[in-house]
């Protein structure tokens, strides 16, 4: 999985594979680390492992991009764990964006039984105080990322 760091000039630098434990943040004030996590990497993980991978990155000020989005139950847990980690003058939560779901009503139990899964969508997650959504529609997510 590549790790891409954007510098002040907006250029991107491939800085090699991360360890995945969030301890290798390169946020030194000159750039913003973006962790792009592949579907393969997430596939073998349990819910809490996924949530920790995401939140550890976000706590380090990184932008986390998931090739494949979370399941609804995992999103529910992500909100719950995020809330438990918010503290005054520190972590204020997350901003999360995916493309709006297809509104076809097939996402319930029958839909899953029939193999229709609506979770495989690119997802962007970042610290609430560093990422702001400028525009979102079915085909485009435009976000402003700041170093704060």
């Amino acid at each position: 999985m590549p790790e891409i760091t954007a510098d002040d000039d907006g250029e991107t630098i491939d800085s090699g594979p991360p360890t995945g434990d969030g301890s290798d943040s390169t946020d030194d004030g000159d750039g913003i680390q973006i962790d792009m996590i592949s579907a393969d990497r997430m596939d073998g993980m349990r819910t809490m492992e996924k949530i920790r991978l995401i939140l550890d990155g976000v706590h380090d000020g990184n932008i986390v991009i998931l090739e494949q989005g979370l399941e609804p139950e995992e999103e529910s847990k992500l909100i719950e764990v995020t809330m438990s980690e918010i503290n005054p003058d520190g972590f204020t939560g997350i901003e999360i964006e995916t493309y709006p779901g297809e509104s076809n009503g097939d996402n319930g139990f029958i839909g899953r039984l029939m193999g229709r899964d609506n979770s495989n969508k690119l997802t962007v997650i970042g610290p609430a105080n560093r990422i702001e959504t400028l525009h979102k529609d079915e085909t485009l997510i435009s976000t402003l990322v700041t170093r704060t």
Partner: peptide
Amino acid sequence: PFTQVNTMLIGIIESQD
């Protein structure tokens, strides 16, 4: 109404049938 929270919450509710 096109916010991420609404999208996620409706998805969670649908997943619970």
